[in-house]
Structures are given as C-alpha cells and as structure tokens.
C-alpha cells in the first residue's frame, strides 16, 4: 500500500538553455552574445560581397552603379561596421577554438583571453582602414 507513495516522482520538465532571465551579467557571457551578434551581422557583408561579384560579372555600368553606393560616405560606414563585425567574429572564433582545446578555461584566464581577442579584432579593423586611407585607396 505504502509502495505507491514511495515510487519515484516524475522529473519536472527539463529547462531549455540558455536561461536569459536568471543569468547574472559576466564578461564571457557578454562575449558569447557578441559572437552571435557579430556573426549574424557579418552575414550582411557576405550578401554584399556576393552582390558585388554579381555586379562585376554584369559589366561596367552595373559595377559603377554598385561602387557609387559602396564608396559613398554612408557606404563606407556600412563597410566599416561589417568589417568590424567580421574581424571581431574572426578573433572571437579564434578564442573559441582555443577554448575547444581546453586551454585558458580558468575564470581569470578566460576573461583575459576574451579581452585580448576583442582588442585584437578592433585593432585589426582600425589597421585595415588606416592602411586603406593611408594608401589613398579609399577617400572620403
């Protein structure tokens, strides 16, 4: 009779991840979100590069029309943002590949690696544009 009450109760529904409501803010959580945001933003760059290739293949007139927009101040701002997303996603990917090996997984090392990879992504972006402007290949 009492066996029924001793039977194991069914487990409650298992939680889904990640639980955004109960997460305390921390640096590696921010970087994880940023990796998804920069990756998603970089898709815009991929689509624009594909569009650039198509315009090139369609001939001089189409290509000139594309570069008129692409080389305008607003176009350059868009390219800058996309390159920032791309470079930060690249160095963020590097961070995740390092973590995949099990290295730098301790809290302090993980935070330091995150800061360094963010910095490297930003430095690569600024260096890329500095060279483009310094060589006169891009002008405002």
């Amino acid at each position: 009779m009492s066996e029924k009450t001793l039977a194991p109760r069914p487990l409650p529904p298992r939680p889904m991840s990640p639980h955004l409501q109960i997460w305390r803010f921390h640096f590696t959580m921010f970087s994880s979100i940023m990796h998804r945001i920069t990756g998603s933003a970089a898709i815009g760059g991929v689509v624009l590069i594909a569009a650039w290739l198509v315009c090139l293949a369609l001939g001089r007139d189409t290509y000139t029309l594309f570069t008129q927009y692409a080389a305008s101040p607003l176009g350059l701002l868009v390219w800058f943002g996309l390159s920032l997303a791309g470079f930060v996603h690249l160095t963020g990917g590097l961070r995740h590949l390092i973590w995949d090996t099990g290295a730098s997984f301790e809290l302090k090392k993980a935070n330091a690696l995150t800061a360094w990879t963010f910095a490297l992504g930003i430095v690569l972006t600024l260096a890329f544009w500095a060279v483009l402007f310094a060589t006169g290949k891009v002008t405002l």
């Binding site: 689509v47 293949a57 369609l58």
Partner: peptide, 19 residues
Amino acid sequence: LSAAVVAATGGALWLVYQG
C-alpha cells in the same frame, strides 16, 4: 539564403571566367 550566396557567387565567377 546560404544557397543563394553560393549560386550568385558561382554564377558570377563563371561569367567572369567566360569573359
């Protein structure tokens, strides 16, 4: 979207290569 990117790139590169 991914397939469209591949198709557009492939098509454009083929046209450029032909020309």
